[in-house]
């Protein structure tokens, strides 16, 4: 990550993160909106979706905990 003042790239990550949190709170407050758990629940709806989600989960874990320079 860039040192010193916030870079444009880091600022956009903050904006995306804030939007995710804001939408997560909105959807948690309204029973008619799908919440954040709707995403893994949708993938867990079939064997194919579950396997795809597990592959993505495993790949992310391998990258984060074993590979990242």
């Amino acid at each position: 990550m860039a040192e010193g003042p916030l870079s444009a790239g880091a600022a956009l990550w903050w904006i995306i993160g804030a939007a995710l949190v804001a939408w997560g709170v909105c959807s948690a407050c309204s029973p008619r909106l799908p919440g954040v758990l709707a995403i893994p629940r949708w993938f867990a709806g079939s064997w194919l979706g579950r396997v795809l989600a597990l592959c993505a989960w495993g790949g992310a874990g391998w990258h984060l905990f074993c590979q990242r320079p």
Binding site: M1, A2, E3, S7, A8, G9, A10, W13, H63, L64, R68
Partner: peptide
Amino acid sequence: SRALPTLSGIFG
């Protein structure tokens, strides 16, 4: 670029 951090860099 250092001005464009990746998600894995942030998690790092």
